[in-house]
């Protein structure tokens, strides 16, 4: 465990999720490749987002999901009720469909996570905030108004802020739930560029329904349909030479 190269690894084993009578995820088995960008593709309602959210146990609690099987992170099954989830969530940054900045200033948004996890001292925090805002290529735009409310930023800036906020707790994994769907083309481009530079050090999993985006950024692709994981493999293979008929039809645009 003290191996320096150790990275948080996600492995899904026989995962089933039911919301009431609806069988949302059907018997999912996969080992997510480390330090790669994995894209989950598939038509809407196929369970992509549910799968993503089951990685850090943020399933919609209002519908009281029934879960069987395991999602093993760092050797622990996160659906085991005895597992304390907060320290595992810290390992996984999340970018949602629309940015949800915390109701505080730009500075505090980034500082929130490190402070919770025990970081003290104004100088340390200042450094962290600047470091991660730079990493999310937002620093130049906001350095003069760090203490204004984060909601005043544009949507694209907000999404990059959410990225900085997520990176600031030093995760090993980044989860993205269609993170560019609310953004303009320019912001989309900068988020994608960020993913490309981050994937050397992070395991990134992105849900997307845009095939071209998957082609641009993904190393590895999972194709889902009606709650089943139909096929997964290296990006080129899935996009150019899919084995399954269903995958082929989806990529050709016959089913969507």
């Amino acid at each position: 465990m003290s191996d320096n190269n150790f990275k948080t690894h996600i492995s899904v084993q026989n995962l089933n999720v039911h919301y009431g009578k609806n069988h949302i995820l059907k018997n999912i088995n996969i080992d997510i490749p480390d330090k790669k960008l994995t894209a989950i593709i598939g038509p809407s309602g196929c369970g992509k987002t549910t799968l993503l959210k089951s990685f850090n146990r943020l399933l919609d609690t209002s519908q009281s999901p029934m879960v069987t099987g395991k999602v093993v992170v760092n050797g622990e099954n996160i659906f085991d009720p005895k597992v304390e989830i907060t320290h595992l969530r810290k390992k996984m940054g999340l970018l949602s469909q629309r940015p949800y900045p915390l109701p505080m200033s730009i500075y505090d948004n980034v500082a929130y996570g490190p402070k919770i996890h025990g970081l003290r001292g104004k100088k340390n925090i200042d450094e962290i905030v600047e470091h991660y805002l730079r990493k999310a290529s937002l620093w130049e735009e906001v350095k003069d108004r760090l203490h204004t409310p984060a909601v005043r930023l544009s949507i694209g800036q907000q999404q990059r802020l959410c990225m900085a906020r997520g990176l600031a707790v030093e995760p090993d994994i980044i989860l993205g739930d269609e993170p560019t769907s609310a953004l303009d083309p320019h912001s989309t481009q900068s988020i994608e560029a960020m993913f490309n530079s981050l994937k050397e050090n992070y395991t990134i999993i992105v849900v997307t329904h845009i095939l071209r985006q998957a082609r641009r950024i993904a190393d590895y692709i999972m194709f889902m349909y009606m709650g089943e994981l139909i096929e997964h493999g290296p990006a080129e293979q899935i996009l150019d030479d899919p084995k399954e008929k269903m995958t082929k039809e989806y990529i050709q645009g016959i089913i969507s």
Partner: peptide, 10 residues
């Protein structure tokens, strides 16, 4: 120390 802090929080 880190895991201790987190247990305190939990």
């Amino acid at each position: 120390t880190k895991s201790k802090v987190s247990y305190y929080r939990v």
